[in-house]
Design a protein around this nucleic acid. Structure first.
Lengths: 198, 198
DNA sequence: TATTCTTTATGACCGAAACCATAAGAATCG
DNA sequence: CGATTCTTATGGTTTCGGTCATAAAGAATA
């Protein structure tokens, strides 16, 4: 889901900034002034809780994040943190809006991406609503499975139980227990503790 | 949050259709072929559960719904049902896309609206994640309070406890009990059983 | 006005997930 | 390579929201 070619970004004055592992790109409740697009590394979008975080999204090469506040003019509803060393394209708001105005094709692709994110969050909210931990876990796994480059028949889940807990709003122990149960039911497979989904 | 002027819709070949109270506009998993904009009445977007529904959104005069699947080409993730008698503008997908292409201003306003919806769902997911029923209820109430025409200092919640339950994924009894508790805590006020939020 | 149906309310009981403690294997780092 | 941290695992206890039953007040309908 690559968004904007780097050549176009540069043309509008973007710069490629480095962020160290653990560094924040922006904080919750900050006003939005820049467009961000990951060139290298991974970024985590999350809400910090007292005990656990809630992960709203994970972004890597070619993906942009934090644009809705830029477009609609509100403050960030979540934090963005580099979870590895990163190189990120940074473009000023006014330049980004100009880029969108000048390139209807890019604008339409962006709209399309927002539509897909909305679809994902709608499905997620529905899954969360059911209150059923197992359904939550499978919904999250299937989301990343569908998002994965190849629609592999066999998807190796690249997350720890803790990460799944952070995305589903459950506790680690619950995820551990439910994953074992899902494996026993045949919904998942466990290869040396790695979760695999068919 | 009016989306597209009816004159423009008509110009692109939209027709004003009637839907009776209780009638479905579309069903979950249907492919999307039309743009819908409410002229009169109210529409409920929801996922049906075995016991309870989960309400994804409520739409009335001037609001459009069900566009993301149209833009990104996937199937509806929820059902849409008229909860009163309705008049709804209906425009064929191809004509809608043409309208967007011809009117960059309308396109940008649409993108902005998707951004706002995404913001709302992000906050909602965070609230749901906390697992705290009281926070869920307040998040929903505040959403509609902010959405309300006037930023009234005193917002009278226009929903039954059952409706709040359907939007938060809680049970009626839980909502009833928690609302009483929130009133005792001073977060809400109860005027003759009507919920009021300051 | 009488009769439903809906909405709000309340209390008892139950079960599932949180919480807590502990531990062992795996990975990371100095 | 040893030490430390992270991850997976397991079992016991607690808590909170779901479930069920019941009832009364209000709204809608005949």
């Amino acid at each position: 889901m690559t968004v904007i070619p780097s050549s176009l970004l540069q043309q509008y004055g973007a710069s490629l900034n480095r962020f160290a592992k653990g560094e924040y790109v922006f904080h919750e409740s900050w006003p939005a002034h820049f467009y961000f697009q990951v060139e290298e590394g991974s970024v985590k979008l999350f809400n910090a809780g007292e005990n656990n975080d809630y992960i709203q999204g994970l972004f890597s090469h070619g993906e942009s994040f934090g644009e809705p506040p830029l477009i609609a003019g509100f403050c960030y509803p979540a934090n963005a943190k580099a979870i590895t060393n990163c190189k990120i394209w940074v473009l000023k708001k006014a330049d980004y809006l100009r880029l969108l105005r000048d390139n209807p094709g890019v604008h339409f692709e962006f709209t399309k991406m927002l539509a897909i994110r909305l679809f994902h969050k709608t499905k997620l909210l529905n899954a969360m609503n059911t209150q059923n931990p197992e359904k939550r876990i499978l919904t999250i796994i299937d989301y990343f499975k569908d998002k994965a480059p190849r629609a592999t028949p066999c998807y190796e889940v690249p997350f720890t139980r803790q990460a799944i807990a952070d995305m589903t709003g459950l506790r680690v122990e619950t995820v551990i227990k439910k994953v074992l149960r899902l494996a026993a039911l045949g919904e998942l497979e466990l290869l040396d503790h790695k979760i695999v989904r068919h």
